[in-house]
Nucleic acid binder design. Structure first.
Length: 437
RNA sequence: GGCCCCAUCGUCUAGCCUGGUUAGGACGUCUGCUUCUCAGGCAGAAAACACCGGUUCAAAUCCGGUUGGGGCUACCA
C-alpha cells in the first residue's frame, strides 16, 4: 500500500509517465496488447501515469469501430488508463509547430508538405533494454512532417505529443528502433526534452516468423470470442520477453506489477505458443469459483441459441463436471452440447463402432432398469447399470462406451453416471430407447 | 541491397552485468500409475548454451567474426 512511503528518501523520483499509442486502423492485436501491458505494468509499478493516445492521423484508414474494439479489449484485459487523447483533435497543435520550424528555417516546404532537413550527425540513443544504439543520419533522408493534405506524419505527431504530454518513458515495439533517430532529429529541431526509450522484442508467430494476419487469431477480441480469460491472456503475454523469476509461470497482474522491471526485459523476439496460452487459461478456469464460471458461460450459451433460463443448481452440477477438463469456455459448448440439444448427433463412424446390434439387449435392460428408479443419481444409476452387466455377464466397459455415445454423441466425457445424472432420467431413458431406431 | 536489433532444450525462459552451475523451471512430447473413455492428478524420461576464433588457469557468461532470424528503409502508424 501507498502508506509505506519512506519519508527519509531523498529527492522525489521524477514523475513516470508512459503511453500506449495504438492506431485505430485495425483491432487490438496480441502484439499491441503486450506493448500496452508492459507500459501499464511499468506505470503501476512506479506509481506513474498510463496514457492512452489514439494515433488516428490517417483519416482514410482510421475507423471508429476499430477504436471501440481497442477500448473494449483494453478494458477486458484490465488495462485501465489515466489519461486519454486523440491525435485527430490536435491537428492545430502540429500545424503550429510545423510553422515554427518553417519560420526557423529548419524545415522547408514541398507543395503543401512540410519537410525536415536532416542534419548529418551521429545520433546515439540509450535504450533501457538494449543499451546504446548509434545511427548515422547521413543514411536517413529528409523527413516529411506535414503531409500535403495538412495532416501530420506519425513521427511528427508522436514526438510533439510525447513531449507535450511529458512522457518520461517511450516503451514500444522493436519495430520502432529505426524510427527513433528520425524522431530524435525532430526533438532536436523543436528543442524538446527527450524521453527515455525502451524497445520491446517483437512477438513472432508459432514458427518464429512474422506475426501475420492470417496465421490464426491475432486480435484480442478473437481470443475473447474463443473463450479465453483475460487473466490467461495477460499472464501469457507478460511471459513473452519477461520473467517474474523464481521459476514462476502463473502470475497474476498484481504480483507481476510488484516484480516488474523494465531492465529485466529480454532482447530477443518471442514466438507465440498457443499451447502454453491454453495451459495458462486452463489454470485460470480451474481456479474460478463455479458461480463465476457460469456467469462467463451464460453469454456463450445464449449466443448458441440455448437461451438464458437454466436451473442454477443443475447448471452448477454440470459445469463442475466439465470445469477440470476445460481449456477455454468454448470447450464447454463443444462437450456439453448434448445437454442443451433435443437430439444427440451421433456420427456414422461412432454408430458403426459402438452401436452394433449386439448392444440392443443391454440397452433394453438398462433403459428398463433406469426407468424404474425413484431417485436418479450417481449411486442408483450405477447400481442399475451393474445389474445389467451382471445379468448379461459382460464387462462394464462393453456397455459404458456405447451408452456414452448414445447419450452424448461423444466417445469422451465425464464419468457415465455423472453424465446420466445431469442429463436426467427422462432424456437418458429416451435416448437409450431411440439409440437403435 | 543499405542501416539497425537479436541468438540457452521444439517453444517461453533462469543463469550472462559481477567467468568456475550435475546449465534450473514451464509448455509441449514420451513412459508409468490412477480409471468406463477423455481430461485431470501423481511419478519419471528425452531434450539447449548456433558456428569459428580470441582473452583467461577456467567462457553459456567478456571480445571479434561468420551464419541464421527479425526490424526499418512510405506524404501507413
Amino acid at each position: 500500500m501507498e502508506s509505506a512511503n519512506n519519508t527519509n528518501s531523498s529527492a522525489p523520483a521524477a514523475k513516470i509517465r508512459v503511453r500506449f499509442a495504438p492506431s485505430p486502423t485495425g483491432f487490438l492485436h496480441i502484439g499491441g496488447a503486450r506493448t500496452a501491458l508492459f507500459n501499464w505494468m511499468y506505470a503501476r509499478a512506479q506509481g506513474g501515469t498510463f496514457i492512452l493516445r489514439i494515433e488516428d492521423t490517417d483519416s482514410e484508414r482510421s475507423k471508429d469501430e476499430y477504436l471501440d474494439e481497442i477500448l473494449r479489449s483494453m478494458n477486458w484485459l484490465g488495462l485501465n488508463w489515466d489519461e486519454f487523447y486523440k491525435q485527430s483533435e490536435r491537428f492545430d497543435i502540429y500545424r503550429k509547430y510545423a510553422q515554427q520550424l518553417l519560420d526557423q528555417g529548419k524545415a522547408y516546404q514541398d507543395g503543401q508538405a512540410v519537410i525536415l532537413k536532416m542534419l548529418p550527425q551521429q545520433v546515439k540513443i540509450f535504450d533501457l533494454i538494449r543499451g546504446e544504439i548509434q545511427f548515422d543520419t547521413e543514411t536517413i533522408k529528409d523527413q516529411v512532417l506535414m503531409k500535403s493534405n495538412g495532416t501530420p506524419t506519425y513521427s511528427f505527431a508522436c514526438v510533439i505529443d510525447d513531449a507535450l504530454m511529458e512522457v518520461s518513458h517511450v516503451i514500444r515495439g522493436e519495430d520502432h528502433i529505426s524510427n527513433t533517430p528520425k524522431q530524435i532529429m525532430i526533438y532536436q529541431a523543436l528543442g524538446f526534452k527527450m524521453p527515455k526509450f525502451a524497445h520491446l522484442p517483437l512477438i513472432m508467430d508459432e514458427q518464429g516468423g512474422r506475426m501475420s494476419k492470417r496465421a490464426g487469431a491475432v486480435a484480442v477480441s478473437d481470443y475473447q470470442r474463443q473463450g479465453f480469460l483475460p487473466q490467461g491472456i495477460v499472464n501469457y503475454l507478460m511471459l513473452l520477453g519477461w520473467s517474474p523469476g523464481n521459476n514462476q509461470e502463473k502470475v497474476n497482474l498484481d504480483a507481476a506489477v510488484k516484480k516488474f522491471s523494465i531492465k529485466k526485459v529480454n532482447k530477443a523476439g518471442a514466438a507465440f505458443s498457443m499451447d502454453k496460452l491454453m495451459w495458462l487459461n486452463t489454470q485460470y478456469i480451474k481456479e474460478l469459483p463455479v458461480g463465476k464460471l457460469i456467469d462467463l458461460l451464460l453469454p456463450f450459451l445464449k449466443e448458441k441459441g440455448y437461451g438464458d433460463q437454466f436451473d442454477r443448481v443443475w447448471l452448477e452440477h454440470t459445469v463442475k463436471l466439465y470445469q477440470p477438463r476445460m481449456s477455454t469456455l468454448l470447450d464447454f459448448m463443444d462437450w456439453a452440447d448434448y445437454l442443451f440439444e433435443d437430439n444427440v448427433k451421433i456420427s456414422d463412424e461412432d454408430r458403426v463402432k459402438h452401436l452394433g446390434r449386439d448392444k440392443i439387449e443391454g440397452f433394453k435392460l438398462l433403459s428398463e432398469g433406469l426407468a424404474k428408479l425413484s431417485s436418479f443419481d450417481h449411486q442408483s444409476t450405477e447400481e442399475a447399470f451393474r445389474a445389467v452387466v451382471t445379468k448379461l455377464n459382460i464387462k462394464a466397459g462393453d456397455l459404458v462406451h456405447p451408452v456414452r455415445v448414445a447419450l452424448t454423441g461423444k466417445t469422451i466425457g465425464p464419468g457415465l453416471f455423472e453424465t446420466m445424472t445431469v442429463l436426467g432420467k427422462e432424456k437418458t431413458v429416451e435416448r437409450l430407447k431411440k439409440a437403435f431406431e
